[in-house]
């Protein structure tokens, strides 16, 4: 029985093992090797030692630029997105009528693809006739301000991306809503008997029990938004003064426009390291604020 189980286990798991070998671990290791080479795919890889890393860290001015742009976007988009999706989830958790309708309404934008989203929002951000400035104009004129140029203004392009990302808070909202609904009612009843007010209940029951979900959402959000690509590719490319040159956009250009496979592998490897460090730091910080029920196990 045991032996049969073991054989079945590896047999059933084989698709994943094959996939992980060829599309996961293998490529990651290959990326390490490639990052030490000069390789244009048309010739054989040529070993250059640390030259790619030297160029990336000390010589290429676009790398810090791309890192800054990506960090800027991530640092605003992820926490704001998490905050607003949590707020909407809390509102929907107030025993509102027509919950499925609201939920559908808020979730709908998240099914829109990166390309369609980019095409649509580029049009919304159009300074002269776009939806956003059309809606804001009365307000702007009241304060005597001129129309913002959004994607065409190096200072506003990244905030515009952050704004656009908030259109997709529906995904986080669904996750939070499910988390909220899984909190046992008795805990609130007990807190009420102990004389806890609504805010105190939120602070001492809701937040701790929801914190693992918030943590998960933040972690995956960071990993995802660090890889922003499609919308940027479609909407602005590198943007005015490289203001929307995001890291993966740059990596993509190096790989598939200039065919610098070695250099782009070094870029990818550095991205991997950054994401890994940020994730580990998040896990470390999580010990202070994330509450796991029965944490001893």
């Amino acid at each position: 029985m045991q032996r049969e189980d073991r054989r079945d286990f590896w047999f059933f798991l084989s698709p994943w093992i094959v996939g992980f070998t060829f599309f996961g671990a293998g490529p990651i290791l290959a990326a390490v090797f490639l990052s030490f080479t000069d390789y244009s795919i048309f010739t054989r890889p040529h070993w250059v030692g640390l030259a790619n890393y030297r160029e990336l860290l000390f010589q290429d001015p676009l790398v810090p630029k791309a890192l800054f742009n990506t960090l800027f976007y991530t640092v605003f988009a992820v926490p704001l997105g998490t905050f607003f999706s949590l707020m909407v989830a809390l509102l929907l958790n107030q025993k509102v009528k027509g919950l499925p309708v609201w939920r559908t309404l808020y979730y709908l934008p998240t099914v829109v693809s990166g390309v369609a989203m980019g095409v649509l929002w580029r049009w919304i951000f159009n300074p002269e006739v776009g939806l956003l400035n059309t809606a804001l104009r009365p307000l702007l004129q009241a304060f005597g301000l001129s129309d913002p140029k959004w994607l065409l203004d190096p200072h506003l392009a990244k905030p515009a991306y952050v704004l656009m990302s908030l259109w997709g808070i529906g995904g986080g909202m669904i996750i939070f809503l499910a988390g909220l609904q899984s909190i046992p009612k008795q805990l609130y009843e007990a807190a009420e008997i102990d004389g806890a007010g609504r805010f105190s209940q939120f602070r001492h029951v809701t937040l701790p029990l929801l914190s693992p979900v918030v943590f998960f959402s933040l972690t995956m959000g960071f990993i995802g938004s660090f890889q922003i690509f499609t919308q940027a590719y479609v909407m602005t490319g590198r943007g005015v003064d490289n203001s929307t040159l995001f890291y993966v956009l740059y990596l993509f250009d190096q790989a598939f426009r200039y065919f610098r496979m070695g250099y782009s592998s070094a870029l990818a490897w550095v991205l991997f390291a950054i994401v890994l460090v940020i994730t580990l730091v998040q896990f470390r910080l999580a010990r202070r604020w994330v509450y796991y029920e029965g944490a001893a196990s």
């Binding site: 992980f20 290959a30 790989a255 782009s264 592998s265 991997f272 994401v275």
Partner: peptide, 29 residues
């Protein structure tokens, strides 16, 4: 399939979700 440590293997598979897909893009290409 009742094999030892399958829970940890499962967590291992889940952990690969955290790999940024972009790292594998060039070698896979």
């Amino acid at each position: 399939c009742r094999v030892p440590y399958r829970k940890y293997l499962f967590y291992g598979v889940l952990a690969t979700m955290m790999l940024p897909g972009i790292v594998t893009m060039v070698p896979t290409f």
